[in-house]
């Protein structure tokens, strides 16, 4: 059979059914927005009812969102929700918590050191590394330019 792989690669890509972009964007917008609105409500709860400072309230909101994302990952429903919400659950803290909790659950079968310990950050690790590195670079620029 005559076969030219470069042409075929292009053709196969063109032939493939696309993800429903409009529907995915709308679902992400609504679900992500709902999570952020819930975060805002929590913020007002912490600052208004419990009289936490601005910084403390923000921190508590993150903790609550992380807790629930990890809990839902653990009981096996996060992936079922995220299948529909996509970037809506990925972008806020929830996606990050899921990215740490899910490999940890998976790796339990290889033990707590070489499994959970070593593999917990396989998905979130790059974000931590490059996030920290970018923070350091930005800090350096800030330090250099902020001086008189």
């Amino acid at each position: 059979m005559k076969f030219e792989k470069n042409n075929y690669k292009r053709y196969a890509k063109q032939h493939a059914r696309r993800s429903p972009m409009g529907k995915n964007c709308l679902a992400a917008f609504l679900s992500g927005g709902a999570i952020c609105a819930a975060g805002e409500l929590l913020y007002h709860l912490f600052s208004g009812v419990f009289r936490f400072s601005e910084k403390e309230s923000g921190l508590c909101v993150s903790l609550v969102l992380i807790f629930f994302a990890a809990l839902f990952t653990g009981i096996g429903v996060f992936d079922k929700i995220a299948k529909h919400t996509g970037a809506g659950t990925l972008v806020p803290f929830t996606g990050f918590a899921n990215a740490v909790a899910s490999p940890a659950i998976d790796a339990k079968s290889e033990g707590y050191v070489l499994g959970v310990g070593a593999k917990m950050f396989t998905v979130a690790g790059p974000v931590l590394l490059y996030g920290t590195a970018a923070g350091a670079v930005w800090g350096l620029i800030f330090w250099l330019t902020a001086r008189e």
Binding site: A16, S19, T73, D79, I81, A82, K83, I105, V123
Partner: peptide, 17 residues
């Protein structure tokens, strides 16, 4: 899933293909 793709409980969207 564990070997070739992402952790089982990871929340992502799969492509139609």
């Amino acid at each position: 899933e564990r070997q070739f793709r992402s952790p089982i409980e990871y929340g992502g969207q799969r492509s139609p293909t």
